[in-house]
Amino acid sequence: SLTDENPWWIAFQSACKAANVELQTEIFPAATDSRYLRKSGADMIGFSPMNNTPILLHDHNEYLNEKVFIRGVDIYCKIISALANVEV
């Protein structure tokens, strides 16, 4: 589980810190494919790097600003680098 001793979680958090990403953590809703993945035993996090963006999933005029998207790519660079080096 994602406690403060979980190395994946520690790596993820430090990557976000390095990218100046302020996190608002919440319990996962049971509505995505995550439920099947989690059942398989994998630790996981649900995260889409979209801030300053109205919630428009499944709605009309769903959009994303390209600057937010491009920053998301840079955030993933940090996260991927951090996860790759986790010792488990």
């Binding site: 302020e22 608002q24 993945l37 989690r38 996090i45």
Partner: peptide, 27 residues
């Protein structure tokens, strides 16, 4: 042999980024 996975979250109108986590095996 997956050790860790990332899946989707959701947008946030504010400055913060929303992150979903879960205790394992809650289902």
């Amino acid at each position: 042999n997956i050790g860790f996975a990332l899946d989707e979250g959701i947008a946030n109108p504010g400055e913060e980024f929303r992150l979903f986590y879960s205790e394992r095996n809650v289902w």
